[in-house]
Simulated assay, not measured.
Amino acid sequence: MRDIFGNPFRPVAFSPSWRTSTAIAIASQMYESRDFSAMPILADALQDAGCDNANVLDHCRSPGPHVRGCWVVDLVLGKE
């Protein structure tokens, strides 16, 4: 459930500046292929874009499981 909804007690303020072309490309590929093995790479891309939010980065680097509807991927792709 946390992969889809995140932590309801710690909402994340996601900065639009973190939506770089690299982050969007990685998130799009994972979303379309349903292969979320690149989540740690997405964390690196978000960190390179200035993301310092521990909830976002830790979620991306966690072993998962990650599924379509992952709250971080959806935030990167601008899905609500």
Rank of each mutant, 00 (worst) to 15 (best):
residue 16 P to D: 13
residue 17 S to T: 12
residue 17 S to C: 02
residue 18 W to D: 01
residue 18 W to Y: 07
residue 19 R to M: 07
residue 19 R to N: 06
residue 20 T to D: 03
residue 20 T to L: 05
residue 20 T to H: 01
residue 21 S to C: 06
residue 21 S to W: 07
residue 21 S to R: 13
residue 23 A to K: 12
residue 24 I to M: 09
residue 25 A to V: 03
residue 25 A to I: 01
residue 26 I to K: 03
residue 26 I to P: 06
residue 27 A to D: 08
residue 28 S to D: 15
residue 28 S to E: 15
residue 29 Q to E: 14
residue 29 Q to I: 00
residue 29 Q to N: 13
residue 29 Q to W: 03
residue 29 Q to A: 14
residue 30 M to I: 08
residue 30 M to H: 08
residue 30 M to E: 08
residue 31 Y to E: 15
residue 31 Y to F: 15
residue 32 E to L: 13
residue 33 S to E: 10
residue 33 S to D: 11
residue 33 S to V: 02
residue 34 R to L: 11
residue 34 R to K: 15
residue 36 F to N: 07
residue 37 S to K: 11
residue 38 A to Y: 04
residue 39 M to K: 00
residue 41 I to L: 15
residue 42 L to P: 01
residue 43 A to C: 09
residue 43 A to P: 09
residue 44 D to A: 14
residue 44 D to L: 12
residue 45 A to Y: 02
residue 46 L to D: 03
residue 47 Q to H: 12
residue 47 Q to K: 12
residue 47 Q to S: 13
residue 47 Q to L: 02
residue 48 D to N: 12
residue 48 D to W: 00
residue 49 A to D: 06
residue 50 G to Q: 01
residue 51 C to T: 04
residue 51 C to N: 07
residue 51 C to Y: 01
residue 52 D to H: 10
residue 52 D to V: 12
residue 52 D to T: 14
residue 53 N to S: 14
residue 53 N to F: 00
residue 53 N to C: 13
residue 53 N to H: 12
residue 54 A to V: 15
residue 54 A to R: 14
residue 54 A to Y: 12
residue 55 N to D: 13
residue 57 L to V: 07
residue 58 D to H: 14
residue 58 D to Y: 13
residue 59 H to R: 08
residue 59 H to K: 09
residue 61 R to D: 08
residue 61 R to E: 08
residue 64 G to T: 04
residue 65 P to M: 04
residue 65 P to H: 09
residue 66 H to V: 08
residue 66 H to K: 11
residue 67 V to P: 00
residue 67 V to N: 07
residue 68 R to C: 10
